[in-house]
Amino acid sequence: MHEKIRVVIADDHDIYRDGLQLLLNSNEIEVVAEASNGRQLLTEVRKYKPDVILTDLIMSGVSGIEAIKELKKENFERIIAISFFDSDTLIVEALEAGAIGYLHKNVQKEEIIEAIKDVNNFRPYYCKATDRKLARLIYKSQFNPYASKTMPLFSQQDIEIIRLICQEKSSEEIGRILNMGARTVEGHRAKIVQKMNVRTPVGVAIYAVKNNLFFIDPI
C-alpha cells in the first residue's frame, strides 16, 4: 500500500476545519495537523513537515498570504490557497506569494481531493471555477510555476491547437479551422494536456502564456 498524503490545514473557523478534516481523512489522505491562524500554521508545518499545505487566506494575526511567503522561504512548495473570497486579486497574491494551487471554498469535495493529489505531485492546480477574468490576471501576474522547468517540445500543429484553445475554441471549432476531425483534435489535446501536466483549458492557457506560446492583448 502506498503512503498517505500528509496534509496540514489552516482556517480560522473551527466548523470549516472540522468539515475539511472529516472529508479528507481517508486511505489516501491524512490531516496531520490543523491551525487557526498563520502563526500556528508555521509552527505546525515546521513540526510535521507535511506533503501538502491547505490554507485559508484571510485569518487574524499572521494572514495566509504572509504564512505562504514564509513557507516558500523555507522551501515548502506544495501549498494550496483556499479562499471564500472571490476577490481575484487575493488569489493572484497567494500565487505570487508561493502557492501553486488555489480553490474556492464552495467547491465539491472531489475537487479538493484532486487538487491535493495534483499539488502533491508538484502540478499547479487552478480551481475549475476560474473564469476568464481571473485567468487573465494570472497571465499578467508574477506567478510562473513553469519558469525553472525545461519545456517539452511542441510541434507547429500542437502550437496552433494550443493557440485556439487559448481563444476558448471547442474541439469541433478547432477541427473546422484546421481541417481535421474533432476526434483527432481531442487526441492532440490529450497529448498537449499531458505534456503540459495540466488539467483544464485554463491550465493550458496559463501554461501557454507563461511559456510565450500565446500572447494576450493587454487590457
Binding site: 480560522d12 470549516y16 468539515g19 472529516l22 472529508l23 469535495k109
Partner: peptide, 16 residues
C-alpha cells in the same frame, strides 16, 4: 468572514 465561511463549512459537512 463569518457567515460565508459557515455556509461553506455546512456544504462540506453535507458532502459527507
Amino acid at each position: 468572514d463569518d457567515l460565508g465561511s459557515v455556509l461553506s463549512a455546512v456544504k462540506l459537512h453535507l458532502q459527507r
